[in-house]
Write a protein that binds this DNA or RNA. Structure first.
Lengths: 215, 215
DNA sequence: TTCAATTTAAAACACTCGTTTAAATTAAAC
DNA sequence: GTTTAATTTAAACGAGTGTTTTAAATTGAA
């Protein structure tokens, strides 16, 4: 029996789950192919290399998320030219949650993959994302900057990277944190609850007035 | 020639530099021992295993930083019982910068190691830090909590992890970010400048009032 | 049905890793 | 100065990695 439900898709589905859980370099091709119930060599046949598989896994999400997120931001700014930072960040919630309709647990998986991607792999993934999705990133940066015009560009550069760190780290360990929160505080959060917790934190940090003494 | 300036120290010095730069699992013992100009087997002879070497590298910093940081926080709270969140965070700056006197580039190295430690290695490092330095961590959490009494404990749990993510991610990529900032904005930041930039961001995020609608 | 292209399969390749072994060397104790 | 313990050395081990190769099976079109 060949091509039962597409070997390529079976590999991608197994790989994204394992990559999100354990990171890229900690996930071997042998583990992926055994979970996907396909032959080891089929990864190199269909994708060329492990690096290209990683990029394919991320592209499957980015190709969906980036355009819808960009559309949402454009729409919000057309409706309200003075949209707040909180509005801009909140705009991303729905495009993120929509990923759950693309695939089960899509939102969590995507955010964890993004986190792993920025934490690991110095080169090829950063390059892949910025060259393939750079125009969307520029749009996001522009929207945030214009919603907090009292922050100079250089300061905003740092704060957006602080923000990236917050999101990436939180999402990469979201499962563990949710478990601890449930055990210690009886809270039962899903990924949407965590997203809605982090947004006010980010908005406050990004827009806090710059202290000239500390520069 | 044996024992030229202590093999153990040579290993620790080479290891901490490489670990901070490339992460733990990306740094092989062969690379460490070649940089340290010692024999490969000496790592296992002096430290037992790579895991124990990693812990020894971190302990050398934590043993210095944790007590002085705790003392500083106790002192600030004795001087001003209503110390603000910004005060608490700022109190950590000097203990951090003092690490530059322990070793060249000590502050950056320590923060990057801490970042790598929390990002990588699911188990043994988290366990090592919480069991060996738990009392200091509790003191920090208590001080922060009491400086922002309007934030419920469960919410504070999440915000402190957001904060951890910001710090860890920023420090792990501090070198790259500083370079970009210099190229794009003509800013020339050292590690102290980055620390002083991040503190107001963190204080604002941690202390922003909780929006009941979003819970 | 035949034939060529695609896909799967099993095995081996070449390499890196942390660790261990056993001999050689050095430093310390008597 | 001899003996004893600590340290350093070189070599090998065993397990794991991504990738390539070779051949077999399967597919779709002629």
């Amino acid at each position: 029996m060949a091509n039962r439900s597409d070997t390529k898709t079976r590999i991608l589905d197994a790989a994204e789950k394992l990559f999100a859980e354990r990171g890229f370099s900690e996930t071997s091709l042998r583990l992926i192919t055994s979970k996907a119930e396909v032959n080891l060599a089929s990864v190199n046949y269909h994708f060329g290399s492990k690096k290209e598989l990683i990029r394919a896994v991320l592209a499957r999400y980015l190709d969906v998320f980036m355009p819808t997120a960009a559309d949402a931001i454009v729409a919000v700014r057309n409706a309200d030219a003075n949209a707040s930072l909180n509005d801009i960040f909140s705009t991303l919630v729905n495009p993120l949650l929509d990923l759950n309709q693309v695939r089960a647990d899509g939102t969590t998986t995507f955010l964890q993959l993004l986190g792993r991607g920025y934490i690991e792999s110095q080169g090829h993934l950063r390059w892949f994302i910025t060259t393939h999705y750079g125009k969307y990133l520029s749009l996001f940066v522009k929207a945030v900057g214009e919603s907090a015009p009292h922050i100079p560009p250089a300061e905003m550069f740092w704060r957006l990277h602080f923000t990236l760190g917050t999101v990436v780290f939180t999402m990469a360990s979201a499962d563990a944190l949710t478990e601890i929160a449930a055990a210690d505080f009886g809270e039962h959060n899903d990924i949407e609850a965590v997203i809605r917790k982090v947004i006010p934190y980010l908005s406050a940090g990004v827009s806090v007035p710059v202290n000239k003494d500390a520069m």
